[in-house]
């Protein structure tokens, strides 16, 4: 039996970094940032806030909405592309912070597509582990502030965390299928190693994303025998407003079906898709099938459909 999505949770830091504040440091205008990305502001965490701090807040919000206590979680999957390098990666510490005892915790050291891959893995592991908590937490400001600011990347990113509860128990949305893809041929076009500033070949990333995300969505919908026009909402990685619009146009769906909150949070990498899901689920969502999709560094991309 296919597993179910039960609830979502999200958390963003309190500090709002407006385009005006950033533009002054970047030597550009607030309007240029908004026109290029659709972003008006983003949240940046304090210097002492960790990936575990961010992820725990979103996880607790998700568990509360799902009505679950720590003892009922069977597995944690934590995606983060901005966790500090070295080991251990933060999943075990997150599980400990949540009071999960010896519950297994898996790290996905993936950036923007991490939460999508986490949901896909959870959909297969729920049969064994029951309630699987998928968390994505990113502190992109740590990457941005570590090096001289590059206007083309510094304007994009924000901090935050999202979470989802996947379970073999019946719930709100049954997962109907997913597709995942990776292609290392373009791995250097979007990369960061903590020693040098984040490198992004914008032309390549946009070209790849605008073709691969709609293709993955079409692929998963064909398998599930669902038309794109029947989807109530597309919950996509919030990379750039112009990209969200492009994906909607390629799929031939009304713009309002493509959920967007990038104007307020910027690109929070792997967290963005689940933050979007958490906000959407709080807004009395229109019933019907939902689609998740993401594209990110690697490159990794894919889509998942539930109804």
């Amino acid at each position: 039996m296919n597993p179910y999505l039960h609830a979502f949770g999200a958390w963003v830091p309190k500090r709002v970094v407006t385009n005006s504040e950033l533009a002054e440091r970047l030597g550009c205008t607030p309007e240029w940032i908004e026109n290029a990305s659709g972003i008006r502001e983003r949240r940046w965490a304090t210097a002492t806030t960790s990936i575990v701090d961010l992820g725990a807040e979103a996880a607790l919000a998700c568990m509360a909405r799902a009505g679950l206590s720590a003892s009922e979680i069977g597995l944690v999957v934590l995606a983060s592309g901005s966790a500090p390098p070295g080991f251990p990666a933060p999943a075990a510490a997150l599980a400990a912070r949540l009071g999960l005892g010896t519950t297994p915790a898996i790290d996905l050291p993936m950036a923007s597509a991490g939460s999508l891959f986490g949901l896909a893995l959870a959909s297969r592991l729920a049969e064994t582990y029951g309630n699987v908590l998928v968390v994505a937490a990113e502190k992109m400001s740590a990457i941005i502030e570590r090096h001289p600011l590059d206007p083309n990347t510094a304007m994009l990113f924000g901090d935050g965390a999202g979470a989802a509860l996947v379970s073999d128990r019946p719930g709100k949305w049954q997962i109907m299928g997913h597709v995942l893809h990776s292609d290392g041929q373009f791995s250097t076009d979007l990369a960061y190693d903590w020693n040098f500033p984040l490198h992004m070949n914008g032309l390549s990333v946009i070209l790849q994303a605008t073709r691969k995300m709609p293709a993955a969505i079409k692929e998963v919908l064909e398998r599930a025998e669902i038309s794109a026009t029947d989807i109530s909402v597309f919950l996509l990685h919030q990379a750039n407003q112009n990209l969200l619009v492009r994906v909607g146009k390629t799929l031939g769906v009304a713009p309002e079906r493509v959920f967007s909150n990038i104007s307020r949070y910027g690109n929070t990498s792997s967290a963005s898709m689940l933050i979007a899901a958490a906000e959407w689920s709080e807004q009395a969502p229109v019933p019907g099938p939902i689609v998740f999709a993401a594209f990110g560094a690697g490159v990794h991309w894919g889509a998942l459909v539930a109804k």
């Binding site: 032309l203 946009i206 070209l207």
Partner: peptide, 9 residues
């Protein structure tokens, strides 16, 4: 610009 490249292809 970057968002015209997909259209060009």
């Amino acid at each position: 610009d970057s968002f015209m490249l997909p259209d060009l292809v």
